[in-house]
Design a protein around this nucleic acid. Structure first.
Length: 460
RNA sequence: GUGGGUGUAGCUCAGCUGGUAGAGCGCCGCGUUGUGGUCGCGGAUGUCGCGGGUUCGAGUCCCGUCACUCACCCCA
């Protein structure tokens, strides 16, 4: 029999892994809604023209084509449909389209698949799930939302059974002002160079700054010093000012950066830190930018990124500035599962397996199952009236904690982990609350409830 | 798109200079004739990625191809 190979970059889960992902998605959704973000789903496709605004053809967009389309009705680029590669561009289109029906500032979350036609690697996929929150204003958007957005994500990280995640913040105005202040010819090239600091080291970045960004060789070191500044208190501003670079944009960016960092530090210490080397590739960001580093998984890159965009959407009369951040659910979950750090307590939702003594007694077992289900206990009935040993094994393989035995003498339920078996009444029996649903465990033996912010510390 | 690595049982892998394919784990059965897990004994499983070539003979050598994977680029 021919083996079906997996399709690279299109991750799929086994049932137990899917349970982990679903619980994480449930937690994300719950916290987003706790903060009043409304759910939105946009279509999977946008006109190619919309996706490629500013003529960037380097974006790896998957296009959609009818199998039976003839060469004659080859659509123009304007009509061609592409799968969206993020959730921000569709949001911009949606806001313009529905501006008359929306109330501003408009707060929405969106958890959907996106597609990018890139070469896959660990943590980067061709089809993956993003969880976005954005706040969109009409003409203006108050600055405090930038703090709010970061703190909502920080709350998500605190609630998830994952290693510590730190949101790194920088500001485009600050960096641009800095590069103007040191007389760089191309501040965008400078940005890209600094972004590589962790990867290629300061010597190579110095070369890039000089060759690509046009920084004078004697000022390249000042840029490197700037890039090495990070922290979550006022010393960040002091160290930056100590470098002596002057530019109005730099001052404005620094004020904004410090406002985000100090406000976040006051409300959730340790969750957010300034880091002046982070750049963010996407070109529509105009101020605050976010990246998130997952402890022990730094090589994945950012698991959650976003920022402020002043002019992503405009209809000529009004502009719609926004602030948003996007959690790469797949980038977070797939590597943690692959490394074996996350485990579900079982591979099925079932809390109870009702044994079947003989096929002639199946109806009685079904009745027990229905009684348990009516009280919210996920229950399945044994597929065969096999030996009880096999039925217990059926439950054991799947991690189902309880097996129910019904006989003419009465009912009993066995906790197959302890082996304890007790008489029970299907109309009143309840499992311990912790067994009602599958639980997600981080590493070995540490049960964590994704909804419980008091989760265990990650140990690697 | 560019460059490197790897394809052998369900999984992880061994298989030397060519000589008819192996281990561990898992799976199935029995011991234990209707209460699993431990233990013991027994058993099943392969187009050796695919196509071609060299050879008496190819998992092994050569060519091609596909897939997976890592790095660059870029990003969640």
């Amino acid at each position: 029999m021919a083996k079906i190979a997996p399709l690279s970059g299109f991750p799929e889960f086994l049932p137990g892994q899917r349970i982990v992902e679903q619980q994480i998605l449930d937690t994300v959704r719950e916290i987003f809604e706790l903060h009043g973000f409304a759910s939105l789903e946009t279509r999977s496709v946008e006109p190619l023209e919309q996706l490629l605004r500013k003529g960037e053809i380097d974006k790896e967009v998957y296009v959609l084509r009818r199998l039976h389309a003839s060469d004659a009705d080859q659509p123009s680029q304007a009509d061609q449909l592409g799968l969206h590669f993020d959730l921000t561009v569709p949001l911009a289109r949606y806001v313009l389209q529905n501006a008359g029906h929306l109330d501003f500032p408009f707060r929405r979350y969106q958890i959907q698949k996106v597609w990018r036609g890139e070469r896959p690697q660990e943590g980067r996929y061709r089809e993956f799930t993003q969880a976005d929150i954005d706040i969109i204003g009409r003409d203006t958007l108050a600055f405090h939302h930038e703090v709010e957005i970061a703190l909502v994500m920080a709350e998500v990280f605190a609630a998830l059974p994952i290693p510590p995640a730190i949101i790194k913040v920088n500001n485009r105005k600050l960096v641009e002002g800095f590069f103007r202040g040191v007389g760089a010819a191309d501040h965008e090239a400078g940005l890209r160079a600094l972004d590589k600091l962790d990867k290629v080291g300061s010597d190579r970045v110095r070369t890039l700054l000089i060759d690509e960004a046009g920084v004078d060789s004697d000022r390249a070191d000042v840029c490197l010093q700037m890039a090495q500044i990070s922290g979550s208190d006022g010393s960040v501003a002091d160290r930056l000012r100590g470098l002596g670079v002057q530019h109005p944009l730099l001052d404005q960016g620094l004020d904004e950066l410090m406002a985000v960092v100090t406000a976040a530090e006051a409300r959730r210490p340790g969750a957010v830190a300034a880091d002046l080397k982070i750049a963010r590739g996407l070109d529509y960001y105009t101020g605050t930018v976010f990246e998130t580093e997952l402890a022990g998984f730094e090589s994945l890159g950012s698991i959650c990124s976003g920022g402020r965009y002043d002019s992503l959407a405009t209809d000529g009369r009004a502009t719609f500035p926004g602030i948003g951040i996007s959690l790469g659910v797949s980038r977070l979950v797939v590597p943690l599962l692959a490394a074996g750090h996350l485990q579900a307590s079982r591979t099925v939702p079932s809390c109870v397996l009702v044994a079947v003594g003989d096929e002639s007694e199946r109806a009685a077992s079904d009745a027990v199952a229905d009684q348990l289900r009516s009280r919210g206990i996920s229950t399945e009935v044994a597929p065969q009236a096999a030996k009880f040993g096999k039925q217990i094994r059926h439950a054991d393989r799947r991690g189902i904690p309880f097996v129910w035995f019904a006989s003419a003498d009465g009912h009993s339920v066995k906790d197959i982990r302890s082996g304890d078996q007790v008489d029970a009444d299907p109309t009143t029996w309840n499992p311990p609350a912790s067994d009602l649903r599958p639980t997600v465990t981080m590493d070995s033996g540490q049960a964590t409830d994704p909804r419980d912010p008091q989760q265990e510390e990650f140990t690697s």
